[in-house]
Design a protein around this nucleic acid. Sequence first.
DNA 1: ATCCGGATAT
DNA 2: ATATCCGGAT
Length: 291
Amino acid sequence: MTKSSPNIAWGEAALSRPQFIEQVWQEGRAAYRELPWRNIDDPFAVLVSEVMLQQTQVARVLNFWPRFMAAFPTADALAAASSADVLEHWQGLGYNRRALLLKRAAEVCAATLQGQLPRSYDELLALPGVGPATAAGVCNFAYRTAAPYLETNVRSVFLHLLFPSQENVADRQLMPLVADCAATEEPRGWNYALLDLGARLKAETANPSRRSASYARQSPFAGSNRQKRAALLRCVLAHPEGIAAAQAWQLVDEELARAGVAPADERLKGEIAAQLQREGFFRCEGGLLRP
DNA sequence: ATCCGGATAT
DNA sequence: ATATCCGGAT
């Protein structure tokens, strides 16, 4: 049952493979969203959009992708830019690590591929900050070469149509179906249809992806390490000439206080600053935190 | 107060 | 396997 190749178990629903594919094409096309990073062949521009769309919704990315691409139009440009400049353009998008990883990916392309992006899924996957979904996104959308693309909107479509009542559905169950459908003549259009139908389903009904085994609730932001990390980074970026750690933390504590959040204790402050340095967000030179 | 969302390090 | 990483909208 798990192996018979043309007749893999097609979810739990009474929907055949051709019926499923037809329905996704029909409803996905009807729900089509025109987005600035769509229908372009430039793999770097697509990579930037895919990385921004990791853990960040379309509405937010719309405010950032055009400005980012104007500032860093090519992998060479991003590789040559300062981390501070790149992080500045990322502020407000969240999960700042992604910006550093994207810049490192650009540096790999600049150093080893004359500024071009790799063509193959496996080589894309090897780039910093590029996982299975992002690598598949670049293949499908930029190169129009088919690759199984499984992210939240796609997951929602498969769960809604093929696992309508099952809870805790693992990606391991979904992936064979996604891969089966991915073998198409039109990988770009097919995956746009999946994304757009998924987005429509979420707008109309309870998020089907909540029935995914990998769905996780977030811990609260207020009072979190994430909040303090982000505030410290913003503070250091605002002082290009460098700022003493104690002074930076005083400014951060004031900002937290305005948000009704207690200041971090000294031990935590040290750990957060050290962690950010280790990850490459800034350096400590002559007692000054410097982007 | 609750919601949304991929990759990486351990 | 599990913990961690952001911020705005609602």
